[in-house]
């Protein structure tokens, strides 16, 4: 009787053991929770730095260039101290913000202007956590609630803009907006922008076809004096700009800033809130 009971117990236990064993020997895949990090304005500096760190080593893709020593400066551990000395008149926070959203504005000696505008990859709130993380590399974190309030508004505007259909009427195009988003990272216009490519004022008076070719096939020829930067200009503007936008932009450049909207050529007037604040 006891023997039979033990046999029954053994049968049940063995069956369970075999099932458990088989399920355990196959490679184990656990479904992780997607990391969704909440960025709130009332976070402590440490929390912000933590999020920034995750971004820096994660989706931000920063380590692809920074830290290798050849493509971009090694910034870990030093960014928080050198930031204040790079550009006289800019605070550490201002400098770091600028180097994220307009990376080519200041190129560290010995490096090429290859970094992309990070605001196209991350939200403004995310960028501020990166600034906090970089500040923490040897310096003091000064990113605070005010920065996030503005960032949230800017993100909402960006979302709304992404949902809008491209314009079809050249006269309704916000050319200054296009310049700001697409051109001024490299070209100067009206005293703003960078010097990777020739200033856009030089285009005034050229033919429509010539400017169009310069935008759509930018690397067909290179302006004198800019040979080191040959091939840098992206070739995707023909796809990124709607036909109406392209037409308006070319007209604008031909005429040196005549048609539509802001004719005074000032870029700073309607700069987005994220940019003019620091």
């Amino acid at each position: 009787m006891l023997r039979t009971n033990l046999k029954i117990l053994f049968t049940v236990a063995m069956t369970l053991a075999v099932f458990t064993f088989i399920a355990n020997v196959i490679p184990q895949v656990q479904s992780a929770v997607p990391e969704e990090i909440e960025i709130r304005a009332d976070m402590t500096p440490d929390e912000l730095v933590g999020i920034g760190e995750t971004l820096y080593f994660g989706v931000g893709g920063c380590t692809a260039c920074h830290g290798l020593g050849t493509r971009a400066p090694d910034i870990l551990g030093v960014a928080g101290t050198v930031c204040a000395t790079r550009n006289p008149g800019q605070s550490c926070k201002e400098y770091l913000w600028e180097s994220l959203v307009s990376p080519v504005s200041y190129i560290v000696e010995g490096f090429q202007p290859i970094m992309l505008d990070q605001s196209r990859l991350m939200s403004q709130a995310e960028l501020w956590t990166l600034v906090a993380f970089l500040e923490a590399q040897g310096g003091e974190v000064t990113v605070g609630p005010d920065d996030f309030a503005a960032a949230a508004a800017a993100d909402e505007a960006a979302l709304a803009a992404a949902a809008e259909p491209p314009p079809t009427d050249p006269s309704a195009v916000d050319v200054m907006g296009i310049l700001r988003v697409h051109c001024l990272a490299c070209h100067a216009y009206g005293g703003q922008g960078a010097m990777v490519g020739p200033p856009l004022e030089e285009l005034t008076g050229r033919s429509y076809e010539e400017i169009e070719r310069g935008i759509l096939e930018p690397n067909a020829d290179t302006a004198a004096g800019y040979e080191p930067f040959a091939g840098v200009m992206p070739t995707y503007y023909g796809d990124q700009l709607a036909p109406a936008e392209l037409e308006a932009l070319i007209q604008f450049l031909m005429e040196g800033g005549a048609p539509g909207g802001s004719t005074d050529g000032s870029v700073g007037d309607d700069a987005p809130p994220g940019e003019d604040r620091p």
């Binding site: 992780a32 997607p34 990391e35 969704e36 990090i37 909440e38 960025i39 709130r40 304005a41 995750t54 080593f57 994660g58 989706v59 991350m122 939200s123 403004q124 709130a125 995310e126 996030f148 960032a151 949230a152 993100d155 909402e156 960006a158 979302l159």
Partner: peptide, 19 residues
Amino acid sequence: NSKLSAISRHGWIAWGAAA
């Protein structure tokens, strides 16, 4: 960080905005 992929990316913006 493949986990920090698509879903969370949008989540971030939304969170930032919702903050």
